[in-house]
Amino acid sequence: MVENRPLLTFFSHLALIIGISFIALPVWLAFVVSTQEASALFSGQVPLWPGEHFIENYSSILFEGEKNSGAPPILLMITNSLVMAICVAVGKITISIISAYAIVYFQFPFRQAIFWMIFMTLMLPVEVRILPTFEVIAQLGMLNSYAGLTIPLIASATATFLFRQFYMTIPDEMIEAARMDGAGPIRFFIDILLPLSRTNIAALFVILFIFGWNQYLWPLLVTTDASYYTVVMGIQRMMAVPDSDPIWHYVMATAILGMIPPVIVVVTMQKLFVKGLIETEK
């Protein structure tokens, strides 16, 4: 039903504009601050329009980092964050899609028990098991490495559970038809299940990428070598400078740069999974 009610349109737009400004204003301010000179910010008044030091600030933070607080160049930290987020997302999806396949389609002893064991780890977030996990990683000598950053975060009960639920909605005839066509378990998985799970994979990738990107406590614990710092902990380090004020325009520039990759992932993947949702018959 399309109605032409100008007043309603006006108010709904107004509400939307107010909502958007609530979200957008801090981001805008962060951007504005990141383009100012250090001296512009001492007055205590936050300017509302960008200054003239955009290129200068960004290039120094990207390639040199901030010496005072011992933060490495942002480019390195972004790369670290990317490696971590992608490894965590891809690893989680790979592990959980395979374990869900085993749990749903294969008969083996203690199948239900194993499923419930995986399911119960849902109740144990990273923070709860962080000390024993740290101990294990330290014993294995994986501190200060990408492996140490990512592997402990890869096991995922949530993703396993989601894939399991999705597989259960696929009719049994589908696997029977594939068996009649002569497809073995691996062909069935690659040719039928994976393409059908495309939308789930896309949605999970977005969620898990952001989960990996936003990890703070774990990277803080396992990395002492600055070359393995991630963006999120980098920002924290820049804020916690001893005996002086944080250099706000650098902090904000880092925050802006740290936001870009997740935004790109969300925007590109969103297209993919909306398209998938329309196309797949389910």
Binding site: E176, A177, D181, G182
Partner: peptide, 28 residues
Amino acid sequence: PGKRDIAMVFQNYALYPHMSVYDNMAYG
């Protein structure tokens, strides 16, 4: 089943939803 040289038509057809008609028929 795949090695018995038989073919089956299912009640709910069990076509592969992500494949074109051609690919559905060609898969076997």
